[in-house]
Simulated scan of single mutants.
Amino acid sequence: MRFLLNWLLTSISIAIATFIVPGIAPFGPTDAWLSFAFVGLFLGLVNSLVKPLITVISLPVTFLTLGVFQLVVNSFMLELASWLSVNLLGSGISISGFWSAFVGAIIVSIMCSILGVATKDA
């Protein structure tokens, strides 16, 4: 049940980022909400499978930049989730460049945190 809630919150966060950031748009023949759900699913998978490995590999750079490089890692995870969604399922979000992914990842992280606190069990 917690997985479904996290998937829903991530999809809502991606939808909010899509409406705020000009370089991110829904892509594919399906409805926009389905595109957000696909990317939310892949972002959850990428964050649980790929991100820990990339975080360990980039630990020296993250340490030297006092953690700021983790924002770059988050933007690459959003790009990877978008790429996987579009290429495997044919629907997702299109990201026009690195800076759009960077700002989008920041917004997705902030919104997931806010929505996660709002739905946290007592």
Rank of each mutant, 00 (worst) to 15 (best):
V86N: 07
L80Y: 09
I57Y: 02
S85T: 01
S75E: 01
L59F: 14
W83N: 15
L71A: 05
L66F: 15
L71H: 05
V46P: 04
L45C: 10
I57N: 01
V50L: 13
L89H: 06
V56K: 15
L80W: 09
I57A: 05
L71R: 03
G92Y: 03
S58N: 07
V46G: 07
V61S: 11
S91A: 11
L71F: 11
L53G: 13
V73Q: 01
A81M: 09
L45M: 06
V73H: 01
V68M: 13
S85V: 01
W83Q: 12
G92T: 04
L71W: 10
F69E: 08
L49P: 09
N87R: 14
S48A: 15
V50H: 09
L59H: 06
L89A: 10
K51Y: 13
I54A: 15
V56D: 13
L71V: 03
L59V: 08
G92A: 03
L49W: 12
L71Y: 10
G67V: 05
V72M: 11
K51R: 15
F69W: 11
P52F: 08
N74F: 00
I57R: 02
N47G: 14
F69R: 02
N87K: 15
S82P: 01
L66G: 06
S48E: 15
F76I: 08
V68C: 07
G67H: 05
S75V: 00
L53Q: 11
F76L: 08
